[in-house]
Every structure is written in structure tokens, then in C-alpha cells.
């Protein structure tokens, strides 16, 4: 384990230092003093495990491909932007647009996330991205979702209707969203529909949540004992019948 401080470093200097360390074979790195450094871990060749003390800036782990980044603090907007593989773990809250367009790897947030979390997540071939939020999410969770799995545990909002905001899954045409607790119909976005959780859903949830609960010291059995609802696409082709050709046969 190699440790250094990012204090007085610019984001470019910090990323450069991290890249040099990983390229020189360092596999476990701990950075303290992180304060608003953007693009942390972007362009970092994996595999390596980076522990971050402090609050990284926007685009944490953008285009992440194989590294593990663990943040002991909050994160800002665009966490895991277009990430391809690897793991992002935030021991705190995260801002808006978490996991935009992510197509692989896993993104674990202990606390709450802002607007449009998991927007346009997509599965691809052997890859299935996973976003797990311990707290609640704001509006437009899983908008345009095309694949992958989002889980919102709603810890701390038990009994309320607010584990998720409004327009959940608007424009969704693939993937699955699980929410622990209640999602009233008026919060469901156009394109998504509520479905009851089946046995195989609970099995999948257990597989996804077991390592998450170990990371954050949460009680897996207690969480799984509570009811979950599932959101799935109302249609895989939400816009299939929208158009007519302006040329040729009508």
C-alpha cells in the first residue's frame, strides 16, 4: 500500500501521479487530502485499487475501465460517467447524473444520489452494469435506461413514498430497477411499469446486495426481509410506432 497526499496538487498532477504509480506496478494506493479534484481515476490503466480520503470533484472515474476506487467521503456530480468496467464505491452521498451511460462494472453509493442517476445505463454482451444506492434518489432515476440493474434501498426513508423521486424510468427500454419500499404509481415515468418481485428477483438481489452490505457493514437479511418493488420497461420499443416514412409506399 502506497500513501500520498493530494494537497496542493492540481487534478492533472494528481491523475498524472496516480498513472505513474499504476504504470510502475503499484496496485494499492491511498490518497488523502482530496478536495474537489476532478476526473479522479480517469484514463487510469487497471487493475489497481485506489482509496480516496476526502471529496473528489466531478467526473470521478469517468470512462473507468478496470480499477477500483473507494471514496471515504462524499462525491460530486457525474460519478462513473460512461464507465466500462471496474468498481466505484462511495462511503457517502453522490450528486447528479451518477453512472451516466455506464455499460459495465459496479457503482455503490452508501447514501443518497441526486437527479438522473443511472441515466441511459446499458447492458452489452457479457456486461451488466450495477448501480446500488443505499439512501434515496431524486427525480428521473434510470431515465432512458437500456440495460443493467439499479437498486435503491431507501435506508432512512422507511415508511415514506420517497425512496425515489418522480418520473422513475422515464423512457426506459431495457434493464431493471429495484426499490426497497413503496413506489406510488404517480412517480413512475412514461415508458416504465411496476411489477411484483418474484423469487428469482430476490435471488438476484441477494447476489447483488451481499458484497454491498459487507462493504458498508449493513444487515443483508434485514434488508432482504423488507418488500421490494420492481420497475421494468413497459415496452422494449417505446418509440416503435411513432414514425411514418415520408417517401415510398405509405
Amino acid at each position: 500500500m502506497l500513501e500520498f497526499s493530494a494537497k496542493n496538487m492540481s487534478h492533472r498532477e494528481l491523475n498524472f501521479a496516480l498513472r505513474q504509480l499504476v504504470l510502475s506496478g503499484e496496485r494499492e494506493i491511498r490518497v488523502c487530502g482530496v478536495c474537489g479534484h476532478r476526473y479522479l481515476g480517469t484514463g487510469l490503466p487497471g487493475p489497481a485499487s485506489i482509496t480516496v480520503e476526502g471529496v473528489p470533484g466531478e467526473d470521478l472515474g469517468a470512462f473507468l475501465d478496470g480499477c477500483l476506487i473507494r471514496v471515504l467521503g462524499n462525491a460530486q456530480n457525474f460519478v462513473g460517467n460512461t464507465m466500462n468496467s471496474g468498481q466505484l464505491i462511495v462511503h457517502g452521498n453522490a450528486g447528479d447524473i451518477v453512472g451516466y451511460g455506464m455499460r459495465g462494472g459496479s457503482l455503490w453509493i452508501l447514501g443518497n444520489v441526486g437527479y438522473r442517476a443511472g441515466i441511459h445505463m446499458k447492458a452489452s454482451h457479457s456486461q451488466t452494469p450495477v448501480l446500488i444506492v443505499g439512501g434515496r434518489s431524486e427525480d428521473f432515476l434510470g431515465e432512458y435506461m437500456a440495460g443493467g440493474v439499479i437498486v435503491v434501498l431507501g435506508i432512512g426513508c422507511e415508511g415514506s413514498t420517497r425512496p425515489v423521486g418522480n418520473w422513475v424510468g422515464a423512457g426506459m427500454h431495457g434493464g431493471t430497477i429495484y426499490v426497497r419500499g413503496n413506489v406510488p404509481g404517480h412517480r413512475v415515468g412514461k415508458g416504465a411499469k411496476l411489477a411484483p418481485c418474484q423469487e428469482e428477483d430476490l435471488t438476484q438481489l441477494e447476489v447483488l446486495l451481499a458484497p454491498y452490505c459487507r462493504e458498508f457493514g449493513l444487515n443483508l437479511a434485514a434488508l432482504l426481509g423488507d418488500p421490494f418493488v420492481k420497475l421494468v420497461p413497459a415496452s422494449p420499443r417505446p418509440y416503435g410506432r411513432l414514425y411514418v416514412s415520408s417517401v415510398g409506399e405509405c
Partner: peptide
């Protein structure tokens, strides 16, 4: 599967956000 490109980049709602993506790509 349908391939939908959203109308906006949802990480870009301002010039500052555009600067963020430009920098993220340069950093990458």
C-alpha cells in the same frame, strides 16, 4: 435493441459542464 440518443448530453447543461466533458476527455 433500440439505440436512443438523448436530445441533450445529460452531463452538459451549461458551458461549464461542456468544459468538464472536454477536460474529462483530455484527461482520459
Amino acid at each position: 435493441s433500440d439505440a436512443l440518443s438523448p436530445a441533450p448530453h445529460h452531463d452538459i447543461y451549461s458551458i461549464e459542464d461542456l468544459a468538464t466533458l472536454v477536460s474529462a476527455l483530455k484527461e482520459a
